[in-house]
Amino acid sequence: MATDLRLDARNSAAPESVRDDHVTADKSSLTARRSFVTLFARYDRQLLGAVGIGVFLFLWWLGTETSVVNPKFLSPPQDVYDALVTGLSPGGELRDQVGPSLRRGLTGFLVGLGLGLVVGILVGSIRLLDKLIEPVLLFFRSLSILALFPVFLLFFGIGEQSKIAIVSWAAFWPIFVNTTNAVKGVERILINAARTLGADRFYIFTRVILPAAVPNIFPGIRLGASYAFTALVAAEYLGATEGVGIYIRSSQEAYQIPSMYAGIVILGVIGVTLNLVLAAAERRLTGWQLGLTSR
């Protein structure tokens, strides 16, 4: 008890400036912690994603370094990085193959996007059409794209048209299915309310159905973009003379394993970049919905 009283006496006898310094330091520390928590809460996805990538690269390096995975079959990340830098440098072989693949992939995706949206909106809007062609669409949707390669070659030959057609086919189905379900899934209460207020069919379709369906259409668009670049590699095997798919296959045949993985990494980067662009467009076009549902 006497010790506590002496400590209190010392604290009370401390200069005012010293106490102010302690209070200021405590406030600064608290402010810094709050700023860190706010920053982490705002960018937690990016920060945790970076940590996940770092852990993946470390495990990759550790697996090859300890020979858990044979380095002849899975090149160490530093070797793949060197092959990537060399291939993308001016005059590098990989750099020359990216352009043709991007052209094919984006062209096929845009064709599949347009067809998927138009056909999906028509089928989702017209009930009779939906019931009429549902068995046909279900049949073609169930077919493997690999089984259709000979058909594409017969109709379009071994040129660019067949490769773009394959990519378009792969991108079409997820976009079509999501668009159809999104249009059919618009709540009837919204449509009935617009009709009660005297809106005509065109107004209801453009101002009620489409805006309500857009948030559910975008996941299909992003999935279609992923399918498009997945099918691109297989499409480039069909008589192509340039492209990342050909680069990957020729590297594997020449047993240049780091270069093979460098091509795979490039395809992944292209897919991730396209997905980020589409996600930004989705946030821009459907931000109003986020504002309504986040409360």
Rank of each mutant, 00 (worst) to 15 (best):
L5H: 13
L7Q: 13
A9C: 07
N11R: 15
A14V: 04
R19Y: 02
D20I: 05
D20Y: 00
D21M: 11
H22W: 08
D26S: 12
S29M: 13
R42Y: 09
L47C: 05
G49T: 03
G49Q: 01
A50P: 00
A50N: 06
V51F: 06
V51C: 10
W60A: 06
W60Y: 01
W60I: 11
E65T: 15
V69Y: 07
N70Y: 10
N70L: 13
L74D: 04
L74Q: 08
Q78W: 14
D79A: 15
V80R: 00
Y81L: 15
A83P: 06
A83C: 12
G87S: 04
S89F: 08
G91K: 05
E93P: 02
L94S: 02
L94A: 05
R95L: 14
Q97V: 04
G99P: 02
R103E: 07
R104F: 01
G105A: 08
T107Q: 05
L110I: 13
G112R: 01
L113P: 00
G114R: 10
L122P: 09
V123H: 08
R127T: 15
L128Q: 12
K131Q: 14
I133R: 09
E134L: 14
V136S: 14
V136F: 14
L137W: 07
L137V: 14
L138P: 03
F139L: 15
F139H: 10
L146W: 01
L146E: 05
F149N: 10
P150D: 10
L153D: 05
L153I: 15
L154A: 10
F156P: 01
G157I: 10
G157E: 03
I158H: 06
E160C: 06
K163Y: 00
I166R: 00
V167N: 01
S168W: 03
W173D: 00
P174T: 05
P174C: 06
A182G: 09
A182H: 08
V183M: 12
E187N: 15
E187W: 04
N192V: 09
A193P: 04
A194W: 07
A194V: 10
G198P: 06
D200G: 14
R201H: 13
F202Q: 12
F202S: 14
I204M: 13
R207N: 13
V208N: 11
I209W: 08
A213L: 09
V214C: 06
I217Q: 03
P219C: 11
I221M: 10
A228H: 02
A228R: 06
T230L: 06
L232N: 01
A234E: 03
A235T: 09
E236S: 08
Y237V: 14
Y237N: 10
A240M: 11
E242A: 15
G243P: 03
G243Y: 00
I246P: 00
Y247L: 04
I248E: 03
A254C: 03
P258C: 11
S259Y: 06
Y261H: 09
Y261M: 12
G263I: 07
I264T: 03
I264C: 02
L267Y: 01
I270M: 01
I270Y: 00
G271N: 02
G271C: 02
V272W: 04
V272K: 05
T273S: 11
L276P: 08
A281T: 12
T286R: 11
W288L: 10
W288N: 11
Q289S: 12
L290I: 13
G291C: 06
T293D: 03
T293N: 08
S294E: 09
R295C: 02
